[in-house]
């Protein structure tokens, strides 16, 4: 109804002022269309490889030998996927990987969020060198880190356990966690925190009840980084474990030498959990562009 009303008013307006400049409107419409087109292109860019991997992973082995390959799932078969999942250590590796990812996430948040807050809020001697120093762990190649670590873990009895990999991944993830959360905490106005204090919150309460919720998007972003990093890390995980591998450590090197069908099945299996995780974290992440951070 309102629609007819507006057209009425615009036609009226047009009658009164025939030479109205419509170019801004057209430009806006064109820009919107371009934006939509760009969105579609970017989505395709991201989704197409995933679609193709999923398609190949659920095709029969014979179908993969055909040329040209078809773009629609007309040869649906779970045969490769099934054999792949049933082979030694794949499910175990999957469980280990999820465990390592989640525990790394928790541990790095427990240590990283307070550290990020401290870096953002307090001026303490050596703050700048500290921030620079944080990045040093990432500057060293993992091989250099893992060999001494493997020796240490062997001597302390942590070798070949999930916790060994969790500790390594936490160390690797902390710099990004601290730097991301600290930049988000910088964006939370100090006044809000002070207001909370005036209304009777203790410093810890003010942090937990006021600052943390406002920093959720940053924490979500840091979590995604941490989880995906842990999920993708191969070298350290394969050096620190023997019988309790994570999934990438278990399959990544062997996939490079496996027949095509298994490469697709393995690739698909490696992509899915990270996608699921990002899917759940996404709703916290989108708040970053919402009203939470001013």
């Amino acid at each position: 109804m309102s629609h007819t009303k507006t057209t009425e008013t615009t036609t009226q307006a047009a009658r009164q002022q025939p030479e109205v400049d419509r170019r801004p409107l057209a430009r806006q419409r064109r820009n919107r269309m371009l934006l939509q087109a760009a969105c579609i292109v970017i989505t395709l860019f991201m989704a197409l490889p995933i679609y193709l991997i999923a398609l190949s992973a659920t095709s029969s082995r014979a179908a993969l030998q055909e040329f040209p390959l078809s773009f629609i799932p007309d040869n649906f078969s779970l045969e490769t996927m099934e054999t792949f999942l049933q082979s030694t250590g794949i499910l175990g590796g999957l469980i280990n990987s999820v465990q390592v990812g989640i525990f790394t996430l928790l541990l790095s948040l427990i240590i990283g969020v307070p550290a990020g807050y401290a870096v953002a809020r307090f001026a303490f001697p050596g703050r700048d060198p500290y921030q620079l120093f944080l990045l040093f762990t990432r500057a060293l190649p993992i091989v250099v880190l893992s060999v001494p670590l493997a020796q240490l873990f062997l001597q302390t009895g942590l070798y070949d356990s999930v916790i060994a990999v969790v500790l390594l991944h936490t160390a690797l993830a902390l710099p990004t966690t601290i730097l991301i959360t600290s930049s988000v905490f910088l964006g939370v106005p100090r006044d809000v925190e002070e207001a909370a204090r005036i209304f009777g919150c203790s410093p810890v309460q003010a942090f937990l009840k006021v600052v943390m919720p406002m920093a959720i998007p940053g924490i979500a972003a840091a979590s995604i980084f941490t989880f995906v990093m842990s999920w993708n890390e191969v070298l350290g995980a394969s050096i620190l474990t023997l019988n309790q591998r994570t999934l990438p450590a278990q399959v990544l090197t062997s996939l490079a030498e496996s027949p095509l069908a298994y490469r697709f099945a393995g690739g698909f299996l490696l992509v899915v959990p990270a996608l699921v995780f990002i899917f759940f974290m996404r709703r916290y992440l989108t708040n970053m562009w919402g009203s939470t951070i001013r």
Partner: peptide, 12 residues
């Protein structure tokens, strides 16, 4: 945690 890893080599 140290005990809850799942074996990936069939034995061990």
């Amino acid at each position: 945690l140290a005990a809850c890893g799942v074996n990936t080599s069939g034995s061990g």
